[in-house]
């Protein structure tokens, strides 16, 4: 189904493509679209200002006045969540783009750049990949600090090696194909071959890999924020919201459950979507 639907999507029938997904894929797509929309429009939809103290009651239960209750300072949880999603989704999207883009570019270079470049890059990436990603991120945060641009960089650098490894194995395989060798033989430059002959044939799997990296980065950044090493106050992403309300845990406050569930719905949704889109071809 997906195979037949992929060209449809390209010729401008995204609805037909969405309809062809299995139920879990539709659910995933809906969740991902929801969070993209929240990230884009969130602050405009928020009923209260992010930092406004709106209730004398802390950790209030969800009710008509505050749909998701209030937090440890009596602020509106829904408003904070709608604004926090922008950091979680935006940072992760940018970092995943940077990681996948850099990984792919380096992989293409390695594939067409000759043996020494390939050896050197692959050795470096193999080394970086043997450092567990959260540990690597912690070392980077300790060295660079955790302002927003640096967090973006940390998340991207952490996931470049994985992206490189996947892209390189595809690029090296494609480089051996007859049509690429023909292009080389007719005198095309290496960069042209990488861009015009190899890259277009890797797009599908690269997109699936990009989705996975996005999920990993959302989890990594929320984890860092949860530890107090990520997005710093007064800014708050969804992970920071969980952290700042941790004292509400014994009473089961919605202020801690809502942002944690929000992150889970985003990552689980993205995972279901990726599985539905790429799983068919694999199995």
């Amino acid at each position: 189904m997906t195979d037949a639907a992929a060209p449809l999507a390209r010729t401008g029938a995204p609805l037909a493509w969405a309809r062809s997904l299995p139920l879990t894929g539709k659910l995933g797509l809906a969740l991902v679209l929801l969070w993209l929309a929240v990230a884009a429009l969130g602050p405009a939809l928020a009923p209260h200002a992010v930092g406004a103290f709106v209730s004398p009651e802390v950790f209030a239960r969800p009710g008509a006045a505050h749909w998701l209750g209030t937090d440890y300072l009596g602020r509106d949880v829904l408003s904070r969540l709608l604004s926090g999603a922008r950091y979680t989704v935006g940072l992760a999207l940018a970092a995943a783009l940077l990681a996948s883009g850099t990984g792919t570019a380096l992989a293409l270079l390695a594939a067409v750049g000759g043996r020494w470049l390939d050896e050197g890059l692959s050795r470096l990436m193999d080394t970086l990949i043997s450092i567990p990603s959260k540990i690597f991120a912690l070392v980077l945060v300790a060295a660079f600090g955790s302002s927003l641009p640096l967090l973006l960089l940390v998340a991207a650098v952490t996931y470049v090696p994985g992206a490189y490894r996947i892209a390189r194995s595809m690029a090296v395989g494609l480089y051996q194909m007859d049509y690429v060798q023909v292009a080389r033989a007719r005198g095309e430059g290496r960069l042209y071959v990488a861009r015009a002959e190899i890259l277009p044939n890797m797009v599908g799997p690269l997109l699936a890999d990009f989705g996975l990296r996005f999920v990993f980065i959302v989890l990594l950044l929320s984890g860092l924020s949860f530890l107090g090493l990520g997005v710093q106050p007064p800014d708050a992403d969804l992970g920071s919201l969980v952290r700042e309300n941790i004292s509400g845990l014994p009473e089961g406050a919605s202020a801690i459950l809502a942002p944690a569930l929000a992150i889970a719905s985003l990552t689980v949704g993205a995972n279901l979507l990726i599985d539905a889109v790429s799983g068919k071809g694999r199995r």
Binding site: G223, A264, V268, N271
Partner: peptide, 26 residues
């Protein structure tokens, strides 16, 4: 498959939070 796919993407702090709520609060 769906269950494990979803579980892989859960943040640990959500699982931990739910566990605390279920087993020590309730």
């Amino acid at each position: 498959n769906i269950a494990t796919l979803a579980m892989v993407a859960l943040p640990e702090f959500l699982v931990a939070t739910l566990a605390v709520l279920a087993f020590s609060v309730e």
